[in-house]
Simulated assay, not measured.
Amino acid sequence: MRTDTVLLPEQTVIFLSGEIDLGTVGTLYEAVRACLDTRPARLLIDLHEVSFCDCVGLRALLQTKDETLRAGTDFRIRGPLRPLVARLVDHTRTADRLGLSPAAPEGPV
């Protein structure tokens, strides 16, 4: 996974790309902690380039949200989510907890 952080006056954006899993969540945690040290009003995590996220990655995103809110910083996730990530969020019913709208169903209804 790759992270790029952009500091803006109104928020800090962490762009993630690649896979969020057991082998990469440490990188996510490091980027978030460095961001929270700057005390931004809002932390925005951009997931539109994340190709895969497993349960460990999802847990890391949920913990990131909790840690960010405890620090007094607003938390947002931006997509759109790629199909594998959207499916994980849909199957685990964590869209609301992450602040996302439910994933659109795939294929004909």
Rank of each mutant, 00 (worst) to 15 (best):
A60Y: 09
A60V: 06
T94D: 09
C55G: 04
L43G: 07
T27C: 03
R87V: 06
T24V: 00
V32A: 01
V89E: 07
P40E: 08
T64A: 03
D54M: 02
R42T: 10
C55R: 09
R70K: 15
I45K: 09
L47I: 08
G26T: 06
V85F: 11
L44H: 11
V25S: 06
C35I: 00
L43F: 07
R78D: 14
L88Y: 04
L43C: 02
K65T: 12
P40H: 07
T64F: 03
D54W: 02
C35L: 02
G72W: 05
H48C: 12
H48D: 14
R76Y: 00
D90C: 01
D66Y: 12
T94S: 15
T68C: 03
G23D: 12
L61Q: 05
T38W: 03
L58S: 05
R42S: 06
T73Y: 01
L61I: 02
T27E: 12
L44T: 14
G26K: 08
V32G: 04
E49F: 05
R70F: 05
C55Q: 05
I45W: 05
L88C: 08
S51E: 15
L62Y: 09
F75A: 01
T27L: 11
D90F: 03
A34T: 05
L47D: 08
L58F: 04
R93Y: 10
G79I: 08
P40D: 08
G26P: 04
K65A: 13
G57N: 12
L84A: 13
L43W: 09
F75K: 08
T92V: 02
